[in-house]
Design a protein around this nucleic acid. Structure first.
Lengths: 339, 339
DNA sequence: CTGTTAGCGCGTTCAC
DNA sequence: GTGAACGCGCTAACAG
């Protein structure tokens, strides 16, 4: 530790006041004469005093820390979301505690809420799915929480209109003349309210309206990585040589699809059209058509909500929907003649 | 909070022992009869008891938390690194506190070490650069620290041989017959020991040995994003129509370069070769030749080191170098005939 | 092997 | 407007 940590008593002694006054002065509480407040502040700066977060938390019951629960930080959406949330929290003087859901197993390991107990004032969960058990564990923490992406009954929600986004994506393909359009998305048994289910629903809805095939044969499940997107695309192309378009529920999976298409000697946007979902930073490099959203803004907004609740605002579980935008690039084009 | 939080006293009372025994039993300390330990454990489980981290930290002086300091979580290397570190820390019962360096300004804002004071037992810094002032602030925290990527005098270091990687990348291009080879990297005045400086040095060294041009005209500075990589590549192509190859110090910048090359109607790997650095997950999708490294393993290894030091191992500032590998894909190829 | 006793460093009533 | 005293919940020394 080098020099012994300076405590509130050191400051009080040096300033010739009590520790209570130091506490009040430094935290900007009322009932302190401007002159004493300035004096205390000066001494504190000089001594390099910072209140011990542990002691402060123990005495006040508030940790000034928010838990960030995500499935995997390395996936684009979550990295952006965490970044937005962390910056917002930091600016408000809050710390961000990272908790990545264990995914060594399939399905992933249990969300251990116990490690967050008494450690955070609030929790931000960003995930495409969250089980009833996990939600119960979260609720048992007894702190305000907000969900980004997947909504959860009784909790605030920040997200997008996934159904509308998927409808726009599929309509784009139908409008280009495609008639055999596959979908790559999450599990077919995900909760109906989950983003994965709603993206699938949008795909089915548009195809049904157009009188086009939309059964399981064209509906692939993948784990939202480029690798798995490439794998299931290969299976789709093997199974359905008549396939001319793919709607992937994430850009990362769409990028995997692009790779497979090219490996087959086919040209994306000419032989096979691919549209993704997210607005991934690297989409422009690949010429990937997509439904863009801002994960950064959603993370930031969710953090703001928690800060408001912690500041006394009612936690009435509102929903904030962010816009999506169809970004047309080269990976989608008219259906090939003769198909 | 719903039901009032259960304290160590509740457990002690229910088990008919003292709080000290509960503390010892639950933490696996010696000098506790197996039978009492089991009894205490059972009661604790039944009551859903978890020790208050604040109280525990205040009494013991240990927070069981490690600070993760990174410039931007959304960049591939740092996301992977943070993920590797978080998982390793969590497995050891430690929490990960995220601190992203403020980068609103240029150069970035100050690293405010004060917010980490008494909040973390150790710090992991992952960055391409870190100023002397920032290092001093970090040192003032008085806790063990490790640097990933950029080394820092007196601190443990986890990284790769950046010079060797850059040499391999540039040799690859020279071996393909290229003679006008540009470099896209970090600031030209970065510390000589920084990864950016060493990657630049590798490029210069190989070109100098081969008697090829390696001056400022072919040496571009960018901010390690795809966007900026695209921008400076455009400037390079405008300035040097004779350019046939580019070595970018990160895959994200290389991807930006690919975009610009294509936008000019040129074919990567045929008209202009591009090699990156990192082994980005999406490199295979783009056919990007690169020098691959594992950011995940480096983050994990750095976390392990800190855990060892916190467990009593000497903090003798060792260096752990991870391997790099040249991965050849389609973005590099023989120099065009007639160049 | 177990219980008792002090703090850890603050926030927070109350009095003054 | 300011200070004194108590307690947050736990760990660590010391007794026994």
């Amino acid at each position: 530790m080098g020099p012994m940590a300076v405590s509130i008593e050191d400051v009080a002694r040096a300033a010739g006041v009590s520790t209570a006054t130091v506490s009040r002065a430094l935290r900007g509480l009322p009932h302190v004469t401007p002159s004493t407040r300035a004096a205390v502040q000066a001494i504190a700066d000089e001594l390099g005093y910072t209140a011990s977060p542990s002691a402060s938390a123990l005495a006040s019951g508030r940790t000034r820390t928010v838990g960030l629960v995500v499935p995997a930080i390395s996936r684009w959406f979550f990295a952006e979301c965490v970044e937005g949330a962390e910056v917002t929290l930091r600016a408000a003087g809050f710390d961000a505690l990272l908790y990545s859901l264990p995914d060594t197993a399939r399905p992933r390991g249990p969300f251990d809420a116990a490690v967050l107990r008494r450690r955070v004032d609030a929790v931000l969960v960003a995930s495409m799915s969250f089980s009833a058990g996990e939600t119960a564990a979260l609720r048992s923490l007894g702190v305000p929480a907000v969900f980004v992406s997947v909504p959860q009954e009784g909790f605030a929600h920040v997200g997008i209109d996934d159904l509308a986004g998927a409808v726009a994506a599929t309509r784009h393909l139908v409008g280009l003349g495609h008639r055999v359009i596959a979908h790559i998305g999450g599990g077919r048994h995900d909760a109906p309210s989950s983003p994965t289910a709603r993206r699938r629903a949008g795909w089915r809805q548009v195809l049904a309206e157009a009188g086009l095939e939309h059964g399981a044969d064209l509906d692939a499940e993948a784990d939202f990585t480029a690798e798995d997107g490439a794998r299931v695309t290969a299976a789709l192309l093997d199974r359905r040589p008549d396939l001319t378009a793919v709607f992937a529920a994430s850009d990362e999976m769409a990028m995997g699809a692009l790779r497979t298409v090219r490996e087959r000697g086919l040209e994306p946007g000419r032989d096979v059209s691919v549209i993704g979902f997210d607005g991934h930073t690297l989409g422009s490099v690949l010429g990937l058509t997509t439904i863009a959203q801002s994960a950064h803004d959603q993370g930031s907004r969710a953090a703001e909500y928690l800060l408001d609740v912690l500041a006394g605002a009612p936690d009435n579980a509102p929903t904030a929907l962010f816009p999506t935008e169809l970004v047309v690039r080269q990976s989608t084009g008219p259906v090939p003649v003769g198909s």
